[in-house]
């Protein structure tokens, strides 16, 4: 069974848990899933195994705390310690596929916007290579940091009696607003120098489609 099927099965089976057990199990599940360095396949396998176990125990009137101990966080940390890390190769593949897909969609969207606007107003299709590369690099850093920050916030908010969701929302909001400001400022200040080339809407859509195709092929290959 692949990861996607395991997750779907998990979503279905989780519905059979009672409220209390579902809360504890979901916390445990998110705690492990937000630890991004772990092997996804192995994590999902042990998660569904423990879900089956909990469902059997629930039938006998046991609670999640009886199964996973009074302190499920300590238990979860023990699991994380034993779970193997995701292989570097798979991680590179995943990030690569995501990058191709993002750049692909960006180029296609840019092509469409240029096409639509060019019939009303005069638009420049000139691309400044160095500023564009800098801004893309910046975007990549922000996305990478953002994933780490958001997952970290979730990871540390679990297993708490009363979670301070509001505080976390403020933190996530600040991060979002901050990075938006950085991109805007970079766009404003870093522009108009270095070598340029013409990049009309046709080429933009064409290149975007190629990127999306590569991303799709990578996804297809990892499924096998």
């Amino acid at each position: 069974m692949n990861v996607k099927e395991l997750i779907e099965q998990n979503n279905e089976k989780r519905k059979d848990l009672n409220e209390e057990n579902k809360k504890t199990y979901t916390d445990l599940m998110l705690y492990i899933r937000t630890k991004l360095t772990l092997s996804e396949k192995q994590s999902e396998e042990v998660l569904i195994e423990m879900l089956d176990h909990l469902l059997d125990a629930q039938e006998e009137g046991k609670t999640a705390n009886q199964v996973f101990g009074e302190n499920p966080q300590i238990f979860a940390d023990e699991l994380i310690e034993q779970l193997p890390e995701e292989e570097k190769r798979d991680m590179v593949k995943f990030v690569g596929q995501l990058a191709f897909s993002l750049v692909g969609w960006f180029l296609v969207a840019r092509g469409i916007v240029l096409l639509l606007f060019s019939s009303f107003v005069e638009v420049s299709t000139t691309v400044y290579m160095i500023p564009t590369l800098i801004i893309f690099g910046l975007l990549a850093c922000i996305v990478f940091l953002g994933v780490k920050v958001i997952f970290g916030l979730i990871h540390h908010s679990l297993f708490k009696e009363k979670s301070n969701d509001k505080m976390n929302m403020v933190k996530a909001g600040l991060f979002g607003g901050g990075s938006f400001a950085v991109i805007l400022a970079a766009n404003y200040y870093i522009r108009g120098f270095g070598p340029t080339f013409e990049f009309p809407w046709t080429a933009s859509i064409g290149a975007g489609t190629v990127f999306l195709l590569i991303s799709w092929l990578m996804k297809f290959k990892t499924k096998i």
């Binding site: 192995q42 176990h53 125990a57 199964v67 034993q82 779970l83």
Partner: peptide
């Protein structure tokens, strides 16, 4: 607790 077997099984 019953769950303790899972870290052991993983190891």
């Amino acid at each position: 607790s019953e769950g303790t077997i899972y870290p052991v099984l993983l190891r």
